[in-house]
């Protein structure tokens, strides 16, 4: 079911590395999660929407402060199912466009070959030459410099099972509680989608949000009120999974654009 939820919110979800744009009347959403999850909690089984999102100070050849997101949720599901959804979605678009592969530089990324799935642990060993670093800056710096540029050539790549500290909204892996059931999708080095099995334990969810609030304070980010409306709704949240896909970036890939500006009208 397609849904439409507000773009303006009084209670944005706190994330340690994403800053909302503040307006006279509240904040612009950084993701529709804050309203879509409460819909699931009220009984909606499968929902999606395409909406504008806003993230302060994100400018670059792959970033804009205002961008378009496709976000979807499935009740009683997990991140493996969302990976299947993502594959089906992108292959469907390719079929409509009569395209077998995405061309990028000298490479062709075959969308109909078996997609690759590597864990974070495998990716650091393979591309950084060591195990997953403890330090947050090292983790992110090596991710953007050594890992991301190598992902999703020949065929699309899922990067899976992040350290749980980077998954404040995700369920832990059953085999290893230190990892979260979260994935990112890469095509030609471009990060395209993020998904996870959602955390449905509302007490743990409240605790994680408080931790994110503290991390924001340490990072000298603007204070948000605690998202009480969201947290209250989470008390009836079902087991579920959700994913978000950057539509501007998807258009970049199918139009062979190197800069997000090339796929925007203004």
């Amino acid at each position: 079911m397609e849904v439409e939820t507000p773009i303006l919110t009084d209670e944005p979800l706190p994330e340690a590395n994403i800053e909302a744009i503040k307006t006279e009347k509240g904040f612009l959403i950084t993701s529709p999660e804050v309203y879509m999850k409460p819909l699931l909690a009220q009984g909606a089984p499968n929902i999606f929407q395409i909406t504008k999102c806003f993230r302060k100070n994100e400018h670059g050849s792959r970033h804009r402060e205002e961008f378009t997101m496709l976000e979807w949720y499935r009740a009683n599901s997990d991140y493996a199912k969302l990976k299947e959804d993502t594959i089906k979605l992108i292959r469907f678009i390719a079929e409509v466009l009569n395209t077998q592969a995405i061309e990028r530089g000298d490479s062709e990324i075959d969308l109909f070959a078996n997609w690759e799935d590597v864990t974070i642990d495998e990716a650091y060993r393979k591309y950084a030459g060591h195990q997953v670093p403890e330090d947050d800056f090292q983790f992110d710096e090596e991710m953007t410099r050594l890992i991301e540029p190598n992902l999703g050539w020949n065929k699309p790549t899922f990067l899976s099972d992040y350290p749980i500290k980077y998954c404040p909204m995700s369920a832990a892996c059953q085999s290893n509680k230190n990892l979260g059931q979260r994935f990112e999708l890469y095509i030609a080095g471009l990060e395209l989608a993020n998904g996870c099995t959602e955390l449905s334990d509302w007490e743990k969810q409240r605790k994680n949000i408080e931790i994110e609030q503290q991390r924001r304070a340490q990072n000298k980010m603007q204070p948000y009120p605690l998202p009480e409306t969201f947290l209250k709704a989470m008390m009836t949240f079902p087991p579920a999974a959700g994913a978000a896909l950057g539509l501007d970036r998807l258009v970049m890939l199918f139009t062979r654009s190197d800069d997000i500006q090339d796929v925007l009208t203004f």
Binding site: H59, D136, D140, T144
Partner: peptide, 14 residues
């Protein structure tokens, strides 16, 4: 100069 930001990670200015 390149702005990058992995997933839920922090902004990296290369």
């Amino acid at each position: 100069f390149e702005f990058s930001k992995p997933g839920k990670g922090q902004a990296i200015y290369r």
